[in-house]
Computed example of a mutant assay.
Amino acid sequence: MKTQVLNLDNKASGEIELNDSIYGLEPRPDLIQRVVVWQLAKRRSGTHKVLTRGEVDRSKHKLGNQKGGGGARHGQRSAPLFVGGAKAMGPVPHSHEFDLPKKVRALGLKHALSAKAKAGAIVVLDEAKASEPKTGALAKKLAALGAVKALVVDGEFDANFALSARNIADIALLPTAGLNVYDIVKSDKLVLTTAAVKAIEERLA
């Protein structure tokens, strides 16, 4: 499918053909959800931990006689039964990561891009360059493009553009190599440069 290419002044700069096998699919929320869950599981630190019975600093001596005490038979004060004791079967450090086939990951990315295309939430720029590092000026230009909460994707960012964009709320810059489903989904607009479109096609076609 064809879409219009704009420049930062919101003026037409030609047209570009978007590959239907990447941007023209019928979006499948289940695939997108699978990839997002996989991404979020990978980034979990998994360092949550509680003290076990062997680590609680309490007396390890038997509380009383086995028989004749008139109550239950107890061993250590560190048992989970007592206040200040250990937690039974509590969390220990471990990885939350799991495997997801490469084909599913690639398909999830295609469906996330197709979802944005279907919603009319993709803006294609001829290039993401700024003549000087001016945050206010760039914010106005992006707002005119409808990119208030947006993800801007380019192969290699211009230094002035990167400096101008870094203090704009809800604007994220991402190199093409780091394009992922989660960042696409959480942004309202996806701003792609023509170089990014070409790189995505080479990666996914």
Rank of each mutant, 00 (worst) to 15 (best):
P91Q: 06
V83I: 11
G146T: 05
G71T: 13
M1L: 11
R203G: 10
G75C: 05
H94L: 09
A169M: 08
N65C: 08
G75E: 03
T176M: 02
P101K: 06
L25F: 00
A86D: 03
L25V: 00
V185Q: 02
D183P: 03
S187F: 03
K141P: 09
G178M: 07
K140Y: 10
I32L: 03
P29D: 10
D30A: 12
S21E: 15
R58I: 04
N167T: 07
Y23T: 00
K129D: 04
E202M: 08
L142Y: 04
G24Q: 02
S131N: 14
V152W: 01
R34A: 11
A115M: 05
V56C: 05
Q76H: 12
R58T: 11
P29W: 09
T176K: 02
K141A: 14
P93M: 06
G75N: 09
E156I: 08
G75W: 07
L163S: 11
K134P: 09
S78H: 06
G178C: 08
R58G: 14
S59T: 14
M1S: 15
E156C: 08
E201A: 10
V191G: 08
A121G: 09
A165W: 04
L138T: 01
D57T: 13
D9R: 13
K134T: 09
V191E: 07
